[in-house]
């Protein structure tokens, strides 16, 4: 953290996505996360960074891990945490997203951590409140803290302390079309210099990503030997309309990361999965629990990344930025 130029200042009131986050800010956030990583291994797992602040987890979509991770991250920073599960869709209640957000904000909240099943909803929410908003996943759009923790895991494994990933090749495999994890990974990885190969059946592989500089392939066996990291995604059945696959059996045959297929990979390949896993579909248990797997490290790193995210969006320089941000919106 000390290497950054003295004039550097984090200027973001919200963390909504990695597409709009400049590369120096991605690096700074990851460096900040590294500073927080040690806290989880101390006997007193708490720092007073957010003492007196209130963080609300506003989840419109079920999530256990992400919500728990944010909750733990906030409490390690000494913030007060409230979980607000809006299980009933705001539409059916006759209350708009804006109403819900303003109601919660009126309770005196500093940060809203929001997950929503629809793309863009968190951005719409951020426009209607004055407090900070952290995107915990919006539809099939972005999941920035997951992208950051995946990148953090890759950088740590390959000893890239400057968070420069040039020379590394990452394959993201599976349901790219419906995955917010894929999008946040793609934006972050490309900005940090990694090569990204997207792998999946054509019905789940939007050609638009080629324009961003990704390589697209439906031949997993040909891609696997070339990569340093393989990030396996699950198929998001809850977002899929109509048929995109003939069968799971066929999918598993061509795109499952089996032990047999692992023989094609480099011996030190890093295997990741954002969870929840469908063991036996996109990944075999033997691989998920094997020596190449970073799946549990991802979970641990997620805590540090989320602490850094909450800390930075509430950090100093915010008042000034708020004014600036408001000016731009009008």
């Amino acid at each position: 953290m000390s290497e950054r130029p003295a004039e550097y200042q984090w200027l973001h009131n919200h963390l909504l996505g990695l597409e709009e986050l400049p590369v120096q800010d991605i690096r700074f956030l990851l460096q900040t996360a590294k500073g927080f990583e040690g806290i989880s291994t101390r006997s007193v797992k708490k720092v007073p960074a957010l003492r007196g602040k209130v963080v609300v987890n506003l989840f419109f979509e079920d999530s256990t891990r992400t919500r728990t991770s944010f909750q733990l991250a906030a409490s390690r920073l000494s913030a007060d945490v409230i979980n607000f599960e809006a299980k009933v869709s705001s539409v059916s209640k006759g209350e708009t997203l804006r109403d819900t957000a303003r109601n919660i904000e009126a309770m005196g909240v500093d940060v809203i951590v929001c997950r929503h099943n629809l793309s863009g909803a968190v951005h719409q929410l951020a426009r209607s409140v004055a407090c900070s908003v952290v995107n915990a996943g919006d539809g099939q759009h972005e999941h920035p803290t997951q992208g950051l923790l995946d990148i953090y895991t890759v950088a740590k494994r390959y000893g890239r302390e400057d968070y420069n990933l040039a020379g590394l090749t990452v394959a993201i495999v599976g349901d790219i079309a419906h995955s917010r994890v894929a999008r946040s990974n793609i934006y972050g990885l490309l900005k940090l210099g990694a090569k990204v190969i997207l792998v999946g059946p054509p019905t789940l592989l939007p050609s638009g990503f080629a324009e961003l500089g990704c390589e697209l392939s439906s031949d997993f066996d040909a891609v696997l030997p070339r990569v340093d990291v393989v990030n396996m995604l699950r198929i998001q059945f809850e977002r899929i309309q109509g048929q995109v696959l003939p069968s799971l059996r066929e999918y598993q045959h061509f795109f499952g990361l089996t032990r047999k297929r692992m023989r094609l990979a480099r011996p030190d390949v890093l295997v990741m999965h954002p969870g929840p896993m469908n063991r036996g579909v996109e990944i075999d248990s033997g691989v998920a629990d094997g020596p190449n797997s970073a799946i549990l490290a991802q979970v641990a790193n997620g805590l540090a990344v989320r602490m850094a995210s909450l800390f930075l969006v509430t950090s100093s320089g915010r008042g000034e930025l708020l004014e600036k941000g408001r000016g731009e919106e009008n």
Partner: peptide, 10 residues
């Protein structure tokens, strides 16, 4: 439909 919709997740 297109790359912008893909990026926006819409």
């Amino acid at each position: 439909a297109g790359s912008l919709a893909t990026r926006l997740g819409l």
